[in-house]
Design a protein around this nucleic acid. Structure first.
Lengths: 134, 134, 134, 134
DNA sequence: GTGGTCTAGACCACT
DNA sequence: GTGGTCTAGACCACC
């Protein structure tokens, strides 16, 4: 659907690892935030209902509700009583600090893995190609 | 934006946010792993003693001990009885998958924040410059 | 602090915050009660129809109906079949206890905010001026 | 303990009305905030443990925990894992807006109850006397 | 001992 | 149908 780029199909599915040290509600919160900031969830798009997502992920509804509550507080999502939850009209963009931190971390990992400068830049270019060409 | 330098002083200190949803022992584990993979902690380098680090971070020694135990299990550090804990001789490098994932996430955030291609590559170059030449 | 006027225009409009922990029907009930006790809604004055108010506030008619039902039960309004809902002829006045409690709470907040005696009395005077002279 | 003022003993106890439209966790949050801003709970003072307060109020521990979590987020309280919850060192003071709103509401109620100007000012003075003379 | 989180299911408020 | 809240008790992380 996008290009012949090296980063193939990318399914915007939410997953929860119950064995992780990060609590499930936090994984959901972070996951939805990522999907929104990625554009995989467009402004105004409806989120799965609390109960549906809970069933999907195999966790308790209250846990999903909690994540949704925090997303609402963060302005990522807008919830209308009885009418479900949707992505906010103007979800907050990540701050420059966060972006730099993410890049720093990624570059760190790449260098540690022995990647050279060219390979890193090339990988970044691939990521951009996989996202931008539309 | 402020100074001319790409990325100024970077102190490889460990920090723990007691209010985070991520438990302290996990923050320590992840933090040390990052310092090792970054090269800020070289193979063979001694880690602070359990008690010293605990005092430093203002947390209980048991919590640090737990983090060290997991690092040992992951092969990142090596604990020698009576001689403290040191970075392993050949600490595990991040897998290519992890690196790509980290880059993908960082690029995602950057694009979401409205950064253009040039700015992203430039930021990556800055990160590399700040790390390699020393 | 900004202008010379004590407390400028005050529009007796009802508002509902859908994100509050207080359910909408309760906000309407409390709001109408306040308007009545303030005198902004005189005895005998007609209230908006259930449907009109619902549309106005962007909520479901059933929710407004529920609030009106409770106001009726409290003796604040009187619903006449086919002739709509009106403010009761002798709506219940707040008890002295309630008044003292409200004042105590307000004074508490003011003191906690660092207001001195003069500022508090002055603010009270302003409130009285804004209400009485019309 | 204080003075011969007209506002006698005031017991800083927390209460929860399970039949209110305001959810219990919100009542606790608001109640603790009030006690802190009043000075009935001094900076650094320990709050009852989650379980103790829950038992005291006859509600579930999770509900108290939720209230404490929100108080922490609001900066009213500081919670140290495993070491209980305490009033923050510099709890946030109420904003001028909130104070004016509280005063307006109190004055409204007083006027509605038929109190004249003198009686209102006198009541305010009483409240101040009961609080300040120490 | 402390607070934090999760569950499973209940009831409420709302559309 | 939707989300919001509460419960009772479990386990985890921490001191």
């Amino acid at each position: 659907m996008s290009g012949p780029g090296p980063t193939p199909a990318r399914e915007p599915a939410l997953e929860v690892d119950l064995r992780s040290a990060v609590p499930p509600f936090e994984q959901i919160r972070a996951g939805v935030t990522a999907l929104v900031q990625t554009g995989h969830l467009a402004p105004g798009a409806p989120l799965p209902s609390v109960r549906a997502l809970a069933q999907d992920l195999g966790i308790a509804p209250g846990t999903v509700a909690r994540a949704y509550r925090q997303l609402e507080a963060a302005g990522v999502v807008r919830t209308l009583r009885g009418r479900g939850t949707r992505v906010a009209d103007s979800p907050p963009a990540p701050a420059a600090d966060e972006v730099r931190a993410a890049l720093a971390q990624a570059v760190r990992a790449a260098v540690a893995a022995g990647w050279d400068t060219d390979r890193i830049h090339s990988a970044v270019r691939d990521e951009l190609d996989a996202r931008r060409p539309d």
